[in-house]
């Protein structure tokens, strides 16, 4: 009796994905953010259209790529969305394969910047975001990236950790404010290191920041536009800075894992995701800013997104090669200069 229920239990656990398998399934790896919206706008309609099941793994870029690398011999994940520099690193590791753009009906509709950001056909951009500084207007005024190290903000500012997607771009802009735009990031790290005690935390999760601002732990922090919603809704006087050095940002891309054996369905899914219909819904839901140039959104949504060819063109982006090539050195330097 005991034994039988144990075996039943174990098999349910072990075979959970297989037990309700349909004829086909697609395993994707995505950011954990806004899963309910993605489910409604993207996964469920896609499942209904194809009759295939979408299995979702969530987490941050780096953790998920670590797992993809670990399973390279027998890939579990068919397609993933990651930052463009993580895609470059995965590509160099041989974890990816080119995406068949001829099979993508929506490919031509994309902004040129999104079409082939790695230059080898292994990644396609699906969303852009701006990165700037969110700050409490009742406490301070932020007009430059250099203001993050001002006396006014000492003890009231959070900065992204160098290992996050926001870290290097924010450092790069801080460097610009200090008059040094070298990608070694040495000058901004040195400056940040001198002010390390004035930084409340080097955050790894942007979700913390709204709470920290509400609790008055911090007054300002560099954030990605995708996290802006929760600040805006908090009812506090918080503004999105337009620093004189400009805004930076990032591009997130979709990639196809090498030898996954499920390329056809994964390509179909990518095409669906890039379609004007889905991209419009994601934009209107303030989930992701569009990479599809045919998307038009309401003024209210546009206000909260990184939207339009002009906006996208103005972003001061760190090239992905610079990030991948320097990342180890940055972490070393960060450990030596900033966190000690």
């Amino acid at each position: 009796m005991l034994k039988r229920s144990l075996i039943a239990g174990a098999s349910v656990l072990a075979l959970a994905p297989a037990a309700n398998a349909q004829d086909c399934e697609l395993t994707i790896s995505v950011y954990s953010f806004a899963q309910d919206e993605f489910d409604e706008i993207l996964y469920t309609p896609f499942e209904e259209e194809t009759g295939c099941e979408v299995i979702v793994e969530t987490g941050n870029s780096v953790e998920r790529l670590a797992k993809i690398a670990a399973n390279r011999e027998s890939p579990v994940i068919d397609m993933a969305v990651v930052s463009v520099h993580d895609a470059l690193e995965a590509s160099r590791d041989g974890l990816l394969q080119p995406i068949d753009t001829d099979a993508l009906e929506n490919f031509d509709k994309l902004y040129d910047l999104a079409k082939d950001p790695l230059g080898n056909g292994e990644a396609i951009g699906y969303t852009f975001y701006a990165t700037s500084i969110a700050y409490r207007t009742d406490k301070v005024e932020v007009t430059s990236w250099g203001d993050l190290l001002s006396d006014e903000l000492a003890g009231n500012v959070a900065f992204p950790d160098v290992t996050t997607n926001q870290g290097p771009p924010a450092l790069y802009m801080l460097g610009k404010a200090l008059g040094d735009d070298d990608t070694s990031l040495e000058a901004p790290m040195e400056a940040l290191g001198e002010h390390a005690d004035d930084i409340v935390t080097f955050y790894v999760r942007s979700s913390q920041l709204a709470q920290l601002m509400m609790q008055e732990e911090i007054w300002a922090a560099p954030i990605g536009r995708f996290a802006w919603g929760q600040f805006k809704d908090s009812g506090l006087p918080i503004a999105w800075a337009e620093p004189e050095e400009g805004q930076t940002g990032g591009l997130n891309v979709m990639v196809m894992t090498a030898n996954n054996g499920n390329e056809e369905l994964a390509t179909r899914f990518m095409d669906y995701w890039l379609s004007t219909e889905v991209q419009t819904k994601l934009a209107e839901g303030l989930v992701d800013s569009p990479a599809n140039a045919e998307v038009t959104v309401s003024d209210e949504a546009a206000e909260n997104l990184t939207y339009g060819a002009e906006t996208v063109a103005q972003l001061d982006l760190l090239p992905p090669e610079a990030i991948v090539d320097n990342r180890d050195a940055w972490i070393e330097q960060w450990n030596a200069l900033v966190v000690q």
Binding site: A66, A69, D161, T201, F202, V204, V339
Partner: peptide, 20 residues
């Protein structure tokens, strides 16, 4: 603690996931 107050356990996780 966050990344400013790393302990061995959080450091271990960081080394594996961030730097492999």
């Amino acid at each position: 603690g966050g990344s400013k107050v790393l302990m061995l356990e959080t450091l271990l996780y960081q080394r594996v996931t961030v730097a492999r």
